[in-house]
Every structure is written in C-alpha cells, then in structure tokens.
Design a protein around this nucleic acid. Sequence first.
DNA 1: TTGTAGGCGTTATCAA
DNA 2: TTGATAACGCCTACAA
Lengths: 332, 332
Amino acid sequence: MPERSRPTSHDVARAAGVSQSTVSLVLSGRWAGRVSEATAERVRRSAEGLAYQPNLAARALRLERAGTILLLVPVLTNPFFGHLHMGVTRAAEQHEIGVVVCPLQAEDGSGPLPLPRQVLDGVITCSIDDTVSADHLHGLRWVALDSAPATTGTVLNMDVADGMRQSVRHLVGLGHRRLGYIRADRTAWTFETRYAAVLEELDRHPGVDLVEMRSTFLMADIKTHITELLDVDDRPTALLCEDDNFALAGYRAAHDLGLSIPADLSVVGCDDLPLARLLTPELTTLRLPAEELGRAGVEALLGGQPTGAVHDGVPLPTTLIVRGSTAPPPPR
Amino acid sequence: MPERSRPTSHDVARAAGVSQSTVSLVLSGRWAGRVSEATAERVRRSAEGLAYQPNLAARALRLERAGTILLLVPVLTNPFFGHLHMGVTRAAEQHEIGVVVCPLQAEDGSGPLPLPRQVLDGVITCSIDDTVSADHLHGLRWVALDSAPATTGTVLNMDVADGMRQSVRHLVGLGHRRLGYIRADRTAWTFETRYAAVLEELDRHPGVDLVEMRSTFLMADIKTHITELLDVDDRPTALLCEDDNFALAGYRAAHDLGLSIPADLSVVGCDDLPLARLLTPELTTLRLPAEELGRAGVEALLGGQPTGAVHDGVPLPTTLIVRGSTAPPPPR
DNA sequence: TTGTAGGCGTTATCAA
DNA sequence: TTGATAACGCCTACAA
C-alpha cells in the first residue's frame, strides 16, 4: 500500500514559513497575544491546505494525557450499559475527555473477548469482577462501578440489595408463598449481592419458599431453564428475574405452558429496559440509575477526588416500578 | 493527587543493571539469540518487581502503529452491532489488533454523542453516513460497512435491498394487498436503500398498496406511531419493519387494538435478534450476516487489500427467516 | 512577536 | 552478547 505519511506540524511550519512552535501555538489556540493575526491566519491556511491532523500518540506522550477513557462492560447490547455509557460520555464531555467502550463477553457465549491495549487516561469498569480487570489495567486510574467495595481503588454502587429486597417484599406482600428466582449464571459481585439480599429478605418471611435457577444470557438457554422451572406440579407463583431479558423469556415460557400473566404467574424484572413497557402486560421491574451511576463514575475518575481511597459510601437508590405483571397468586 | 509517575524502561534497565535497549529487546520477546538467558531473566524479574507497564503512547509514536482500531456504530444496544463487534474483534485478534467501540447516538435521543479523539490505526464505521465520519476520521485507514458505495475508500455491504424484496415477495405471496411499512427515522444509506428496494418490488405487484410511517428507535415513539398506523378502518394487513424492535412494538400495538398475530396482522422484522424467537408467535424476520460483515471489514482494513479502492463487489447475502408471525391476510 | 532547543518513553540501528 | 545513540511528532520554556 502507498500509505503516504501524514503531514506533521513541521510540514505546516515550512508551508507557512514559520517555526514549528508557532504552528503549535496557533493550532492549540493558545496564541492570544503571542502570535500576530496575520501569521496565525497563514498557519491555519497551511494546515488546512495540507489537511494536517496532529499525531495523537506524540501529543499523548508529550502531554502525559490521552484525552480518552475506556468504559469496560460485560456486554454491549444490554440497554443498561447503553444508558450507563451515556452518563459517562456526557460527564466526560465536560472534562474534554472522550470515551470508548469495550465489552468483555461475546454475544454468543464464546469465551471472553480480548481487551484492547491502548493509550488511555483511565478506565471505568462496571459489573465486572476486579480479578478480571486489575492486572490488565495496572497503573491506570480506575473506578469500578457496581462492584465489590473491598476492591482497591474507588468503587461506586447502586443499592441493588435494597432493590431486590423491595421486589421480594412486593411479591410476598401480594401473597406469594413460592418464588422462582432466575439468577444470572455469571460470577460477579452484583449478582452475588442480589442473591444474598433475596435470601436475607426471605429469612424475614418464614413460610415463603424459593426455587432457584441459573441461566446464561443466551436467549435459548433462558427459555429452556425457565420452562423447566415452571413445568412442574408445585410451580412457583411468581418469578423474580435478575434481568428484564429473563422476564421476557418468562413471558414466553408462561405462554407456552398456558399460564397467564399476572393471573397465574407474577413476574418481576430488573433494569427497567425500554422493553419493559412493550410487553403485555407491562413489566413490574426494578429501575437502576444507570446514567447517574455513569456520571458519578466520571466525577470520581476525573474530578477532584483522590484515587486509591475506597468509596463505599451511600449507594445510589433503586426503585421498584410496579406495572401490570404482578398480582396476587391464583387461589389454590 | 500524588500520581507517582510510572516506571519507565529506563528504570527497569537500572534495576537490572543493563541498558534500556536490552530491556526493550527482552520485553518485546525479540531477544532470541541476542541476549543471554540469565540477563533476560534478570530483566523480566526487575520489570515485574517495578510493575513496569510500557508507555503505549511512546510505543505508538515510535512504531507508527497503535494496535487498536475503532468500531463506530449508531447505537450500542442493538444486538446487530453486538454481533458485528464480535466479528470485528475476533478477526482483529488474528492481526494482534484490539478493538474499541463508540456509538454516535444517545440512547435517549438527546443529540449526537461526541467522538473520541484517540490513538488509532484505523476505523470501521457501520450504517453511518460518510458525511458524519469523513472529516473527523481524516487521514485514518477507514472501511465503511452497510454504507453508500460511492464513498471514498473501501465499502462492504450486505444485500439489504434483496432482503427487503424477499420480505415484500413473502407478504405479497401470502395474499397481502395493503402493507404497512415502518421506516427508521434516521438518515442513512442503509434505510434509503431498503426503502427504494421496497418501492421497486412493489412496482412489480400492481394492486398492492403501501402505507408508510417513520419512527425513531425510542420505544415510546414506536408504539405510538404503529398504533396510529393500525388504528384506522382500512388498516394494513401486514407490517414490514426495518428493525426487530419495531416488530416488538407492533406486537404490543396489535394486542392493544385487539388484533391477533398472524391471523389479523402479519409482521416481518429485520435483523433476526435473539428477541425474535422469544416473541409469541415467533417473528418472521430478515437475517443479516452481522458477524461475517465484521470479519470482512477487518480483512479489508488490515488485510492485504489496497485501501482507497472502492469495493462495491458482491454484497453479503441476507436471508428471510420465516416463522410464525406471517400468514395469509384475514378474509374481508 | 517569533524561533531554538530539549525531552516525553519507546524501538531500531549500529558499533563495541 | 550488550550498550550508546538517534529518531518518532509534539509541546513549551526560554532566548532572541
């Protein structure tokens, strides 16, 4: 390939008949009162003429600042992470920092995806175990979201435990005495915490049974597992899902078994994805403050806060949104 | 903040009692027969002791190679792009190149997101108009996917036009004479092409009407628009959707209007998202070869191909997957 | 108001 | 087998 090498600031300087430093001054916008308007204009014209683009690697080396942070998430396609990303990006924008994303897991369940090694100022991980990220990100400023508070570095959380307790209380309050619990088949602090919270809340309600089931996020898996859970004599009368996608599969499984929601089966999701309002009936689900979490993460990473301190202060609140998918259990 | 500066290869060299170049040789793995095993071991030990991580900006500057490419997509959360990303990442892995992603659009419809300026070897854009990307990515190797073939640079496509024609033929073949068409309210070559293909195919079937409607990807919008489309006397008997998410909203709107799918209304989606198999009935939809497109994009970007040549050869085939959401129209 | 010079951390060439 | 040295392109203190 030809790959003609790109023009450098030196080339621009020669074209404009000035020195390299003048070019740098003008193009960085820091020329006020240091370079004459005429010279500045000449420089700008030459830069444009040559289609000059500064070499970002050189700039990053010199400035010890890349202008980019990485958002590391389990998967791309969960809208929760989409909203998280928005929060991160909007907040980073204020600091004149760009954001790129990288998912760790393959959509089709085929092994972990490779992490990019690249020029960065910092990393925000979400819902990922520190063991995964710690070694690779060594030496970078790092904020973990929705992760174990014991981790080195800053950690910000949502109150997922409280959320799960709300969900359980809602169902028990409706009269349910046998709950199906669809857990994510992935090792992560967030899911362990949810599990512990559910067990803890159930301890307060003697006589309420829990039937657990774990599933990957592969749609086919989910449906199979939920159908197994429901296709028994003493089936649960309510389904507690760690993800709205699980709930979607629950709807399908229920339909296939001739169960109607919420008359025969109540369903509670988690995330409040846009999907939740398109289901029939609309899904009762736990809303997580994704965007706010993202903003907070950026402030912790780029704001005045010291890194290295564990922040296990007040987690962001979560809210149970009650819609049409939950009702008292059928009479028996 | 303290921000103790990270150790450099120079520090490692001093700790190991060797020169910087020896360190570079050893750590880059290119020391076979050039450095003694004892020295190499000493270097490795010092590097580990200091927790040395090479400065990637410096390396990129020196090597004129970043080891990373950017995948630029409209939104993160559409699973189509998740699978595209997998194809890109797996293929890039072969070239020892990392991949980061950046979406251009906000999940909530609030204006475009800022692009990151960062150290890269190249960019792959998908389903994005060249006007958006061209100026910002100036000077980078660039491959466009699912985009207008007239663009400067390499372009690879899927045969979305043929796919839409398949969908129309399927519906017309079932006997439908009035089709509702839910178009994406976004300016992009891919959607214009789909539109043109639908019109073209309809020209071959006189007597078949088309009722168009445009919608953003915001769930609330979609439902509203589809309901408007269906809540009339001479409503279409089939819905042709440019996205499976539109189809989901179609299911909901149909349910709310008391229409049953497919008896009263047939629905055809596009993308074959995992969601398609969880709907009741399962969704007839156009499958797009996302992963394959991603792989092809990487080969065009990093493989032996010359850049700068427009590749408008054979587009990747698309396949209509017929499931339960399409049937003959109701008798009138 | 403009130019000179030095160095950021790395890799590669070449001499020892 | 190893080490000195130069260069990648940029920014900035300081000199002119």
